[in-house]
Amino acid sequence: MASFQKDFKIWVMDHLPGSALLSEPLSLEPIAGDAGFRSYFRLNTQIPLLAVYSPPQEENNLAFVRVSHHFSSGKIKVPKIFAVNFEKGFMLLQDFGTELLQPLLNLDTLPQYYDLAEELLLDLQLLHPGDSIFPNYGKPQLIAELQLFQKWFVDKLLMLDLSQRDLSILDDLFELLIGNAMEQPIVIVHRDYHSRNLIVHNNQIGVIDYQDAVVGPITYDLVSLLKDCYLSWPEEIVRQRALSYKSRAVSKGLMREIKDQKFMKWFDWMGLQRHIKVMGIFARLSIRDNKESYLSELPRVVNYVLSTTFNYSELKPFNQWFSERICVCLPRYPWYSGD
């Protein structure tokens, strides 16, 4: 480890931009990371910089760089990349600072910051996806994500054995959700557009953690923002903002005019797909990666699932199954009960 740190520090020193003045020996201060395998270090340079170790065997660093350049060319605010070593997984990036959107949000500040976040999202969706930059977020990818729920949340976290009837109910729901996703207009999708991946920087919103961006359904990033896995808002506020976004998307030519009810179905069912996937991902982060803090966010995600499946008659069979097979197990777990 000492050898790696020395090698990393030498690389950082060799690739500092000319404007990155140092008044004392270079230091690399570890800072909190994200749900991936990357490690972040804040430098003591006079311009804000981050050194990043992003293990190439775990992270798609080429995708990060390509998406960064594409977003930047479209005036999307992303960290500037100063240097990359793809073989070793070293990167030197602009530091947007520590002002994540999440702790700034409350019912009073929500309109101000969500207006900015939604305008940024519209700009992102208006970008042409280019050639071979963004993978297609189609049926195989959607199925693979939904299957994370059974593998990691049901099987490994709750340790439940599912019957053929249980599996049939899941299959029926997955078909509905995939059909809903596939009928929507296609745009660039960040795929994790929420309050922990948006940073307030110089009175603007900057976006991070976008290396998994794809082309996919228009409501995916919107529902990721408005039905955030790390905070929640009253349903009426969510509905009002979703429909306001729909009107702006129509006016900008991103989609044709459709009935509000249809758009809300797109939005709600897309959110259900995401939240079912997230239950699997948060369980995997805890079990495989020892990041147990993500389990404390699951009660909110469970509530999203219950609410959405209660509000649509087509989803009632899953709502009943989820209540009877899954929810009855949850109070025994400290991360759910709060004990």
Rank of each mutant, 00 (worst) to 15 (best):
Q141L: 15
Q141F: 10
Q141D: 12
I143V: 14
I143T: 13
A144S: 09
A144W: 06
A144I: 04
L146P: 07
L146V: 00
L146F: 02
L146W: 01
L146C: 01
L146N: 03
Q147F: 05
Q147W: 06
L148W: 06
L148S: 09
L148G: 11
L148Y: 07
F149D: 05
F149L: 06
Q150M: 06
Q150N: 12
Q150V: 12
K151E: 13
K151S: 13
K151D: 14
K151F: 08
W152Q: 02
W152E: 07
W152V: 00
F153K: 01
F153A: 00
F153R: 02
F153Y: 10
V154C: 09
V154T: 08
V154P: 14
V154M: 08
D155Q: 14
D155S: 15
D155N: 15
D155Y: 10
K156W: 06
K156D: 14
K156N: 15
K156F: 03
K156P: 14
K156V: 03
L157Y: 05
L157F: 05
L157E: 11
L158D: 11
L158P: 13
L158A: 05
M159Y: 13
M159C: 13
M159E: 15
M159R: 14
M159T: 15
L160G: 04
L160N: 04
L160W: 02
L160C: 02
L160H: 03
D161V: 10
D161G: 12
D161S: 15
L162P: 12
L162N: 05
L162I: 02
S163Y: 04
S163H: 04
Q164D: 15
Q164G: 12
Q164I: 12
Q164Y: 12
R165T: 14
R165L: 10
R165C: 09
D166S: 00
L167I: 11
L167R: 13
L167A: 10
S168D: 10
S168R: 11
I169Y: 01
I169H: 03
I169A: 00
L170Q: 09
L170S: 02
L170E: 07
